[in-house]
Design a protein around this nucleic acid. Structure first.
Length: 572
RNA sequence: GGCGAGGUAGCUCAGCUGGUUAGAGCGCACGACUCAUAAUCGUGAGGUCGGGAGUUCAAGUCUCCCCCUCGCCA
């Protein structure tokens, strides 16, 4: 029994997430958490919406809503969709919540005391008409490099050149279009990441069991060019966490907020505090997950994220933690995913290319998506979602292999023995062989889950399902029944126990189907210690009901319709 | 142009620190069974492991060069 703290990268608030976002951290973190809970470990799975920053303000403006209201509504939407996919967060919080304000200000104060924050005067564009500064995407103008008319303050979309707002020619406000702009001096805080470079490197070098994807990205940032750069952690925006030095004012920083990438990972901690509030727990309860001086020494902390988040989790956030001088938990294992592509190209939120979480659930129940996405997770390289592959995977694995197994066992039993687990007969060689295979596969499945090798785990799970069909075929109870009903009864009883075992071990991947099997059995098993034990767990005479078919097939017609509908360009 | 990740059967991918006839799933062909959702099970065909050179008794697995794809940055 261990304590495992798990966080999923925070989905950004500006819109509904697509399948790539789902498989890039939310889904695998849930599967891992579910597995660990099943194995009897104490798990804390935390996620939240990441709500601050310019894109949130722009999305709110586009929706014609105040940013607070927009975020509150989108939070509810994302929370509901997460539940729709069975994401079993212990708490799904918001980075805009009071706990995060307090903690973010706390960390900033500690970092300042440790001499890790510089106050830097820099030039920013101020709009007199809008009465505010115009950072990043709030300002547009002509690109100084290529002359493109609609370049933004952070980057020219035409030639991809990185820009500063002050570089733009004929700049204008993206809000009002006003050209009544002036350059003002404004003070900002910089996190002196470079001071902790050696310590970070030492720390990362101890992480020999991390995936190459993770350590190579981290090392690149540490050593590329002039090495790790200091980073601005404040912005001239309204929406965000006000800059304070712990509980105190920060002279000269009035009206400014922390940069979204500074406060977002702190929400992992704050989200755990929110969990305590929501569940009647004490401050000590949540701190025991995070503070090594308050009980967290036995906690294993695992983070899930897509690869674009790796630098922030291997460098910036650890700088915040280490620099605070306080014994907060650093990540122990970091699992990063590559991209999921859609029919050979990128998922695109702006052009509505690909499938989004709300749309997916309108087409099929979440287990279909969970299974296909997890069993094809982009672990070693990018992986491609195609409708053909999705259809083939779901039809074969879920419908034909697992669903049909449950169907053939329950229906055969009902017609020959009635609606309870039949008694009689003695297990023999076939059953011993089955036990041996299940033991081997369960072991491999567990090993893969412990190592967070999701695809491999899915393949083993599938192998366990297949073993049931193989067994039935060899044992052929329909033949045995004619001459030796007791033998047939024993085979079917074994198959029922196999079903119960499937319900338990499949839960991390397809929780709804697991529940359906358990309901039809009127049973809820524990994680199998040995196959022999598990395959004789159900009492003889135990009643069951024949469930509705667990899964259905996706036919070619609907596949083609969906393919056309989600190809982008036209939004259907 | 720089950096990173890849290039293994028709498709999607496994192949750990180099070592018997290179594996899996899907697809395909043939066969078996008939309990089940025309589902299942078995057998088989299919690869000079991107190309070239090198190290080694031995290389998909190490070194060098080249080609191609994807991503990030210029």
């Amino acid at each position: 029994m261990a304590r495992i703290l798990i966080t999923s990268a925070l989905p950004y608030i500006n819109g509904i997430k697509h399948l790539g976002n789902l498989v890039g951290s939310l889904l695998p973190s849930d599967a891992y958490a579910r597995y660990m809970r099943l194995r009897g470990h104490e798990v804390m799975l935390i996620c939240a919406t990441d709500e601050h920053g310019t894109p949130a303000e722009l999305a709110a403006a586009k929706a014609g809503k105040p940013v607070e209201q927009f975020c509150a509504e989108m939070y509810e939407t994302q929370k509901t969709l997460g539940e729709g996919f069975g994401l079993s967060f212990d708490h799904f919080g918001r980075s805009s919540n009071p706990h995060n304000h307090k903690l973010t200000q706390h960390f900033a104060g500690r970092l300042a005391e440790a001499g890790l924050i510089d106050e830097v005067m820099e030039k920013q564009v101020y709009s007199n008409a809008d009465g505010r500064y115009l950072p990043d995407r709030y300002i547009e103008g002509a690109c100084p490099a290529c002359g493109f008319e609609n370049a933004r303050g952070d980057q020219c979309e035409n030639c991809t050149k990185q820009l500063d707002p002050t570089d733009l020619i004929n700049p204008r406000s993206a809000i009002s279009g006003s050209t009544d702009l002036e350059v003002r001096e404004t003070k900002h805080l910089y996190l002196r990441q470079s001071k902790l470079r050696d310590r970070l490197r030492e720390w990362i070098n101890t992480k020999t069991d991390w995936p190459v994807l993770t350590t190579s990205i981290a090392k690149k940032w540490l050593d590329d060019g002039d090495g790790l750069q200091d980073r601005g952690i404040t912005r001239d925006l309204d929406w965000g966490i006000p800059v304070r030095k712990g509980d105190e004012e920060w002279p000269g920083m009035e009206g400014k907020v922390f940069y979204v990438w500074f406060d977002a990972p702190i929400e992992y901690i704050a989200g755990t505090a929110e969990w305590a509030d929501a569940n009647g727990k004490s401050e000590a309860d949540w701190r025991s997950w995070w503070r090594e001086d308050e009980g967290a020494t036995d906690v294993k902390y695992v983070q899930f994220m897509a690869k674009d988040n790796v630098p922030f989790h291997t460098l910036s956030f650890p700088v915040t933690i280490m620099g605070s001088g306080e014994p907060w938990k650093l990540v122990d294992h970091l699992k990063a995913f590559n991209w999921l592509t859609y029919e050979g190209g990128k998922f695109s939120t702006s052009s509505q290319r690909g499938i989004f979480m709300d749309q997916a659930l309108e087409l099929l129940p979440s287990d279909y998506w969970r299974w296909w996405l997890l069993s094809n997770a982009p672990e070693s390289s990018d992986s491609d979602f195609t409708w053909a592959a999705f259809q083939a995977g779901c039809n074969k694995d879920l419908n034909d292999v697992l669903g049909n197994f449950v169907s053939r066992v329950t229906k055969f039993c009902r017609s020959k023995f009635g609606d309870s687990v039949p008694s009689g007969g003695v297990p023999g060689e076939e059953e011993a062989a089955l036990e041996k295979e299940v033991d081997t596969r369960l072991d491999a499945y567990g090993t893969a889950m412990e190592a967070i090798e999701i695809r491999k785990a899915a393949a083993e799970l599938r192998g366990i399902w297949v073993a049931g069909n193989e067994y039935l075929q060899r044992a052929a109870p329909w033949t045995a029944f004619k001459t030796d009903p007791d033998q047939a009864a024993m085979v079917i009883r074994t198959a029922f126990n196999l079903m119960a075992l499937y319900a338990t071990v499949s839960e991390p991947f397809i929780p709804d189907a697991s529940k359906a099997i358990n309901q039809s059995l009127g049973w809820s098993g524990k994680w199998p210690v040995t196959a022999k034990e598990a395959l004789s767990a159900l009492p003889e005479g135990h009643d069951f009901t024949v469930p509705e078919n667990l899964f259905r097939k996706i036919d070619d017609g609907e596949r083609d319709i969906w393919n056309a509908k989600f190809s982008g360009a036209s939004t259907a």
